[in-house]
Design a protein around this nucleic acid. Structure first.
Lengths: 173, 173
DNA sequence: TATAACATGTAACAAGTTACATGATTTC
DNA sequence: GAAATCATGTAACTTGTTACATGTTATA
């Protein structure tokens, strides 16, 4: 809820937009940062409107479907800054789902562990390369920071997997 | 669901246990790996039993509350290995909630960004030290691997935050 | 003329959490 | 005699997803 609101308010800080536009942008440009789905975005926008953080006005171009254009207001800008500071200050205790499997590797023969972890390693490496080839946004330093963060984390993940596989291969663990 | 089942089956691979015992163990020893709550564990155990992966027999010591003791069976051991291999092979596309804030730092004055990120940095550093001071489990190499993973990821996170704060301080961004 | 894009939603479902309920026994 | 521990759950709620519904207009 809070993250969803922060994203939506943040996007409206740049300019007023209608729902479809927002959803397109999230799908196309923010798919690495969030996986918010359309119905969730529409519902959250309506909730933010009901609570008085954003205003709606209706628009229609010719015979095209009518649009609801959302604009952030003063109350919304205040909430945005609060959520932003909270988000920047917060420590998130990541719980890597992959660690669950690691805990139990003693129950699986080493060669099968190596095979499975190698698959994980390859997928991580492929994703890392994808990020490395991403063009840097000239305008928004924030977006670049988020991508840079992803890259350093993925590099560490890849290295950790490589080390772990090597240890398993040499029985040195 | 799948992660929850993997944890519970994995714990039962070691020995048959009753629910309270399992929940205590998770709370005390696995709080860094999972945040599964008691009602979830009880419900999942019952579902695994209903689907024929674990067996239940009832026990009572004196006048103490009766216990349901869960034991993994052959079908359950098969499922466990499948879930384990799947978990080890899977690539997880982490979506760091903190990246949302980073995207929007242009809307916040630099000094306030620095203050907020410093708070995040301190919390991460404290947690990292906690992990570094954790005793290594002599018996289970899997647990040590999971902790080692946490440590390398946290180190990277701390370094990234330090670099980002420094960049903001020197306006070099 | 079919299909993709435009535009906004509803309804059913899934997964998990919080708070509550119950009652015995051990410890302070 | 109060509080913590033992032991197992239920019910209501929250959050979000998937699948479906609806209808127009531009594109191939």
């Amino acid at each position: 809820m809070k993250q969803r609101s922060l994203i939506l308010l943040g996007l409206l800080m740049g300019q007023s937009q209608h729902g479809y536009q927002i959803n397109e942008f999230i799908e196309r440009n923010l798919n690495t940062i969030t996986d918010m789905k359309k119905p969730t975005a529409y519902a959250t926008l309506d909730k933010l409107n009901a609570s008085g953080y954003i205003d709606i006005h209706h628009e229609q171009e010719g015979n095209r479907p009518p649009r609801k254009v959302y604009s952030i207001n003063d109350k919304g800008r205040k909430l945005f800054l609060e959520l932003l500071i909270e988000n920047l200050s917060d420590f998130e205790n990541y719980q890597y789902k992959g660690d669950i499997g690691l805990m139990f590797i003693d129950y699986l023969p080493d060669n099968q562990c190596i095979e499975a972890l190698t698959a994980r390693y390859e997928k991580n490496k492929k994703t890392l390369e994808l990020y490395l080839n991403m063009p840097t946004h000239a305008m928004q330093r924030g977006v670049n920071l988020a991508i840079e963060h992803k890259i350093v984390m993925l590099k560490t993940e890849v290295q950790f997997l490589k080390d772990t596989i090597d240890k398993l291969k040499s029985n040195d663990i």
